[in-house]
Amino acid sequence: MLLKSPTFVILLFFCVASFGQKKQEQEFRIDKKELPDGVMALLSNYLDNAKRLRYYKERDGEKSSYEVKFKKDKLHYSIEFDEKGVLEDVELLIKQTDIPNEPFGKMTQYLKSNHNKYRIKKIQRQYVNTGDAAQTLKEAFQNRILPKLRYELIIATKDENGYGEFELTFDANGEHLLTRKAVKTKYDHVLFQ
């Protein structure tokens, strides 16, 4: 009788898991051939010596997007495309010291005035495609400091609601544009195991 119970649990789990997949935002890894036409052709000049090349798809209801991620010349790139394969933006992981002093000072001021306690976990420089995809890629891979670029910060915070995580976007001058609450990943299943 006891030996039969694991089979039951596994069957139950698959039923629950298949229900759970509906109506959820989902991001997953895909093969290169699943990318929209034209994506690889657009990136071909930039992928020489790229390491850890990975392709992802994100589905949120009816909407899909694609992401190509890799490491090149010790820099981590993340390039996002819409569902038709049109370039949306290029993000590049940077350090605090890669941001000019003046905009970083403004960002710090904003963070201090909006969060009691914070820790910067990750900074990305973002080149948004405003119409010319080839030019946007060129500027991003030249790592140029331009007035139209943006910075995206992931911060961990502590305030009256406890610990949280936020994703903030600033323009090149350090002016705050957007704040989104990030979903914290749970750790209970590892912590007390």
Partner: peptide, 19 residues
């Protein structure tokens, strides 16, 4: 620990934990 089907662990997806 890490998700096995992308960078984020979404509902319905698998993960690995090693200790």
């Amino acid at each position: 620990d890490f998700p096995l089907q992308g960078e984020k662990l979404d509902v319905g997806e698998a993960y690995f934990v090693g200790n």
